[in-house]
Nucleic acid binder design. Structure first.
Lengths: 109, 109
DNA sequence: GTTATATTTAACCATTTGGTTAAGTATAAT
DNA sequence: ATTATACTTAACCAAATGGTTAAATATAAC
């Protein structure tokens, strides 16, 4: 388990643990969005959204560009790969061990 | 984005955002471990580990069985699938959109 | 029965988190 | 120049988080 950057994993998983931020990511996965647009579905103040966007950006999951008064946020496409790989690699490991020690498999009771 | 259980995603990602808990999962992916064994690599009190294990168990990522004085913890194999799928599904979405609007791809500057 | 081991629970504390409101900055519209 | 819009920053607050130590519980060993 040496190939993973612990701090980055901390950040990414932490970002994803908040439902507001996940919804923001879901919106951004359909393309660029302004702060207003991102805020629209939430019953929450704009500064709160602004903070979430900062958290997302600090963790490297999104970027923004400025256009006039607007800020358009966008997904950084590969930023979650490491997190997803971490889970997959682990899963491989334990299914391997499950196979080796079949007695450790739990039967439904 | 309707098929995902928000609370479960909150819990799973939150669990994974802590490096101590990830290390515990890494250990458990090689098989059952007692609390002592799990605590060994950390410079941290036993109650702290105990808490982490409770968090892991509440989120549904691990179980334990009791044997004498010992508690043996084990991975619940499919508990992270939803989290990993959430990321993958999203990634599919945005790579699809990337393909559609090639102008949104960022060139290295 | 006493003591040692494995672990949890309780009480506490500092820091972080996720929200708020109020004020500030930058750009556009009139 | 004034006003409106888009957004951030600052100051604040309550609740959650991740750790601590001290005490409690359960089982095993002597």
């Amino acid at each position: 388990m040496v190939k993973y950057n612990a701090e980055h994993l901390n950040d990414v998983f932490s970002v994803l643990s908040d439902p507001t931020r996940r919804t923001i990511i879901e919106q951004l996965s359909k393309g660029e969005r302004s702060v207003q647009e991102l805020a629209q579905p939430f019953d929450m103040s704009l500064p709160a959204i602004s903070k979430h966007l900062k958290v997302l950006e600090n963790a490297g999951l999104v970027t923004h560009r400025k256009e006039g008064r607007f800020r358009y946020y966008a997904i950084k496409p590969d930023s979650m790969d490491e997190a997803c790989e971490w889970i997959s690699t682990l899963k491989e490991l334990w299914t391997k061990f499950e196979g080796m020690f079949c007695c450790s498999k739990q039967k439904k009771q």
